[in-house]
Design a protein around this nucleic acid. Structure first.
Length: 271
DNA sequence: CTGTAATCCTGCGAGC
DNA sequence: TGCTCGCAGGATTACA
């Protein structure tokens, strides 16, 4: 599922297809996503031009003419793609936004952990995002990051996954970043040295950049906004590689449980 | 404050 | 082949 690199890929794919187009209507499927589409939102979307498509953390922001923003989250299995309007609907398509060029934006989500919400004003949108998201990984201040780690006894993996500390990292890229930095996922955050904190901050940046270059990772369901799968799964060092040799020392990759998630790591390289 | 578990869902692979 | 079990990119809530 979509973490920052996958969401960034979707946004980059959709931007040229959607910006400048006008949404003609909203078609809602029988099953609700995480929360139901409110009928009151439809007139605020239908007839509106799309001014911009942005990403914040794992959230997709479709900025509409006027003050409203359509906010989408892909959850675990969400797909957001553009199709010719007559094209048959795939199973689990829950929302459709026909456009003025004969195509249609479709939100498909097998597990329905995704969400689609409308925020009527920039203030309401900011309130929602600010309550949930810390800084973007590419704008992470070293001092802020070090202080965030030193200020808690939680394990480092839990801090990486905490969207209010750092926005956009999920289970795959947390594990890959920790391996790259040589830090064990169960390491207590408040025992990290300044050097290790900086090493981890850089590792997160490098891993995310490379994953974006690879158009994200497809484990099973993920596809970009143009329908293409990702390629970064071919470059995983540890994620999903339990029992296979560590790329650095050949020790079998182990899996442990941290913050309720599987943590793939090398027991020899990561301290 | 932490950690853990359950919740929302469907699908798939492993094991019997 | 067919069944059950556990697990999966996430976020939120309840509870110890």
């Amino acid at each position: 599922m979509p973490e920052l690199p996958e969401v960034e890929t979707v946004v980059r794919d959709l931007r040229p297809l959607l910006v400048g187009r006008t949404i003609g209507a909203v078609r809602v499927g029988r099953h609700k996503l995480r929360s139901p589409w409110k009928p009151a939102w439809t007139p605020r979307v239908a007839g509106r031009r799309i001014d911009a498509i942005d990403r914040r953390g794992k959230w997709i922001l479709v900025r509409l003419a006027g003050d409203a923003t359509l906010v989408l989250h892909l959850g675990m299995t969400g797909q957001l793609t553009v199709h010719p309007e007559p094209e048959p609907l795939a199973d689990h398509t829950h929302l459709r936004f026909p456009l003025d060029d004969g195509r249609e934006l479709r939100f498909r989500d097998v597990r329905r952990f995704g969400s689609a919400t409308l925020f009527a004003s920039p203030g309401a949108l900011a309130e929602h995002l600010n309550a949930r998201l810390g800084p973007e990984p590419f704008a992470l201040e070293p001092e802020y990051w070090f202080a965030a780690l030193r200020g808690t006894t939680r394990c480092v993996k839990a801090v990486l996954l905490d969207q209010t500390v750092l926005a956009g990292v999920g289970n795959i890229y947390a594990d890959e970043s920790l391996f790259r930095a040589g830090v064990h996922p169960g390491r207590r955050a408040n025992t990290m040295t300044r050097t290790q904190a900086e090493s981890l901050r850089c590792a997160v940046e490098v891993v995310l950049r490379r994953a974006i270059d690879g158009r994200g990772s497809t484990i099973r369901d993920y596809i970009g906004g143009s329908g293409l799968k990702g390629g970064f799964q071919e470059e995983f060092a540890v994620y999903g590689r339990t029992g296979q040799p560590c790329p650095a020392c050949r020790t079998p990759i182990a899996v442990a449980r941290h913050a309720g998630r599987s943590s793939h790591h090398c027991p020899r390289c990561q301290k």
